[in-house]
Design a protein around this nucleic acid. Structure first.
Lengths: 204, 204
DNA sequence: CTGTGTGAAGGCTTTCACAGCC
DNA sequence: GGCTGTGAAAGCCTTCACACAG
C-alpha cells in the first residue's frame, strides 16, 4: 500500500467522528453513500480513502460500523490517548482547558503552564497552573510528546524552541506566526483571524 | 487572469499577516526569498501566488512592503472590516469574544447570542449577551453576513439553518459536525479535537 | 443486483527552469 | 547581477468507469 496522503488522513479522522455518532444511533452497517453524505465528501473519495485501511467493507452490503471504527482507530494510532501539555492560559487557553472535545477524542491535558500562574483567573480551573520554569521537568518526566501553544505571537517561537528541546514532537499552534522547527517536529496551525479573513473573501 | 485557487487565497492572507509584521520593523522592501522563508513556503510558490495580484514586484529588487500590503488588502477584500455575530457564549465563545486577533484582522463581533443569556458568566464581557430569539432581528437589521458558530454539535445544523435563512452567507464553524448549507453559503470548519488527532498521527 | 474496490483519467497545485526587466 | 514573472513539467489528489464480491 502506498503512503497515505495527508488529506486522506485528515478525512479519516472525520469519518471516525461521524461513525461514532452513527454508532450512538445504534446503526450497525452503513454504505459509502450514506457515510459520505454525512461527512460532506463524495462516495468514491470515501471508498478510496478507506482503501488505506485494507480490506474493510462487504461488497453489495456496506461497512460494519463497529468494524470500521475499530480499523480506523487502530490506523489513526497507537498514538492517540496521549497526554498533552497546554502552554498559555489566557482566554483561549482557558477555553481549551475546559473543552470536552479533546477528552472524547482521546487526549488529556495533563499540565498547563503560564508565564504568570498566579494571575487572577475568573473561573475554577480543573488543573493547577504551573510556572514556565517547570516546563522542562514535567515534559521530560512524563515523556510528553504533544503541546498546545496558546500564547502571544511575540513569544511563540521562543517557547516552541524550548518545547522542542525538551522532547515535544507535535505542536498545535494557536499563535498567529509560522513556527520554525526541525523537520522531525510536526506543527498544525490554527489561526482564527486567518479563518475569518479567508471566509470574508468568499462573500460576494 | 485565471480564477485564484482556494489554497492561494489562504496563503495570501498569511503573506499579508507577515508583511504587517515586517512593516512594523520598518522594512521597506522584501524579496520573495525572505518573505517566503518567513511564512514557511517556497519562494517560487510565493511568486506564483502573487501573480494573482497583477504586476507587483520589481525585478532584481523585490517587493515594496507598503505596496504589496496595499495590493493584498485590496485583493482580499472589500469584504474585510465586516461586522460579525457570535452564536454560543460558552467557554470557547467567551474566549473568542475576548480575542484581539479578529479586531486586528478587521473584524468586529457586534453581537453575541446564547441560548441562556442570563447564565452565570465568570468574567465581564465586552458585550451584552442576547437571547437566540433576537438573532433574526439583529442580523437583518444590520445586514450582517458572517457568523461564528461556537455551539454544541447537536444543535449546530439547526442554528446554521436559521442563520442562513436570515441572510448569513459565511460561517466559521467550531462545532464538530459537517454543516449542510446551500452552495451560496461558505463554511470554514475549525475542529480542535480533529487537529489534535491529526497531529498525533504523525508522531513516530 | 447492490455497493465496494481500484486502475486509469482528469484536474488541480506545486515546482522547475529560465526568460525578462530593473 | 539580481530577482521577479511564467510557461512547462511534475506531483498530488479527486473523480470516473467498471470489474467483482456477496
Amino acid at each position: 500500500m502506498k503512503r497515505t496522503p495527508r488529506r486522506t488522513i485528515y478525512r479519516l479522522s472525520v469519518y471516525l467522528r461521524s461513525l461514532q455518532r452513527l454508532k450512538e444511533k445504534q446503526l450497525v452497517s452503513v454504505s459509502s453513500e450514506t457515510l459520505a453524505r454525512a461527512t460532506g465528501v463524495k462516495p468514491t473519495q470515501l471508498r478510496k480513502d478507506i482503501t488505506h485501511l485494507g480490506q474493510v467493507g462487504k461488497r453489495g452490503f456496506g461497512y460494519q460500523v463497529e468494524d470500521l471504527i475499530r480499523k480506523l482507530t487502530e490506523f489513526m494510532g497507537a498514538n492517540r490517548f496521549q497526554p498533552v501539555v497546554l502552554v498559555g492560559v489566557g482566554n483561549l487557553g482557558t477555553a481549551l482547558l475546559s473543552y470536552r472535545g479533546f477528552e472524547r477524542a482521546g487526549f488529556e491535558i495533563v499540565a498547563a503552564f503560564d508565564a504568570d500562574p498566579a494571575r487572577f483567573r475568573s473561573k475554577e480551573l480543573p488543573l493547577k497552573i504551573l510556572p514556565m520554569d517547570d516546563l522542562a521537568a514535567v515534559i521530560k518526566e512524563r515523556g510528553i510528546k504533544i503541546a498546545i501553544l496558546a500564547i502571544p505571537g511575540t513569544v511563540a517561537q521562543e517557547v516552541a524552541n524550548r518545547l522542542v528541546n525538551v522532547g515535544i514532537t507535535a505542536i498545535l499552534n494557536f499563535a498567529p506566526v509560522i513556527l520554525l522547527t526541525p523537520d522531525s517536529v510536526v506543527v498544525n496551525n490554527v489561526d482564527l483571524a486567518l479563518e475569518l479573513e479567508n471566509l470574508a473573501y468568499f462573500i460576494q
